[in-house]
């Protein structure tokens, strides 16, 4: 790792101000992505600003039909939260499948979304549930947030403060783990709103990051059941291919994980 300057921020404004002072500042939340990257010397921030101790950025609130997860809340706390388990069990379940226990203790939802790894789990839930990403500057709709591999609508120095999830009628997540990294080789999140709208998002599959899967959405809108996807074919075009999965295999997984997600949603 290159030498850097570590700052522990006490509040969101403090973090933003410290960020602005550095030459090449980076926010640090759980560090479960940034630190491995820095260790490999693939990132060289002059300053790292630690968000993980900012009290206003930690915690989970449920009000009415919305579950709000503050950005620095670790995956473990989301997975364990009784409120989340009750309102959107699929989201708690997803959080419990991220990485391993030590990663879940430190990694945060804000870090995961800001990083937008094409194989990360949270983006699938955020996109399928139509969540809103709240920052220190604005609110961004999920559909506008993800901009391809490792890229988002966030501006330099913008801080995700919370993510607001509308509570769906039904939702489910199924993930085929990458054998080595344990990220999603392909994960599919399906949701049906109380109004009857259906959305499905797949992570790990596409060359351009998390994506909606219209074929699955249409089939499920007509018939919310795993069997409804039997006749769906997913095109391998534009899907990732590597030693752990060909594009055809990932296309198959989008469908099979979609079916299992629906089954899990009930």
């Amino acid at each position: 790792m290159y030498e850097t300057n570590y700052h522990r921020a006490s509040s969101v404004p403090d973090a933003a101000a410290t960020f602005a002072k550095g030459k090449e500042s980076k926010f640090l939340a759980g560090g479960q992505t940034l630190l491995p990257v820095m260790k490999q010397r693939l990132a060289a921030p002059s300053d790292v600003i630690d968000l993980s101790k900012i009290q206003e950025m930690i915690g989970i609130e449920v009000s009415g039909d919305t579950v709000t997860i503050k950005a620095a809340t670790p995956h473990y706390d989301v997975a364990q939260s009784e409120a989340v388990q009750k309102a959107i069990p699929a989201l708690a379940n997803l959080a419990s499948m991220i990485g391993d226990p030590a990663v879940r203790y430190r990694g945060t939802i804000g870090g995961s979304l800001a990083n937008n790894d094409p194989a990360a789990d949270y983006p699938a839930a955020v996109l399928a549930l139509g969540a809103t990403i709240k920052t220190n500057k604005r609110a961004i709709a999920a559909g506008d947030f993800f901009k391809g591999l490792f890229s988002t609508a966030l501006e330099d120095g913008e801080i995700i403060t919370a993510v607001a999830f509308p509570v769906p009628a039904k939702a489910g997540y199924a993930k085929m783990r990458h054998p080595a990294s344990r990220f999603a080789l392909t994960g599919v999140f399906v949701a049906r709103t109380k109004a009857g709208d259906v959305s499905a998002a797949a992570t790990g599959a596409s060359q351009s990051g998390v994506m909606r899967v219209p074929a699955i959405e249409q089939a499920l809108k007509a018939n919310w059941s795993p069997g409804a996807l039997d006749s769906v074919t997913i095109s391998a075009n534009g899907l990732l291919a590597d030693i752990h999965g060909s594009a055809e295999y990932r296309a198959n997984l989008v469908k099979v994980m979609g079916q299992r997600a629906v089954a899990a949603a009930g």
Binding site: M176, P179, L185, H244, G245, S246, E248, Y249, N252
Partner: peptide
């Protein structure tokens, strides 16, 4: 015999 390979062998 990764899942990918086995799946291809089946299908």
């Amino acid at each position: 015999a990764t899942p990918d390979r086995v799946w291809h062998a089946i299908h």
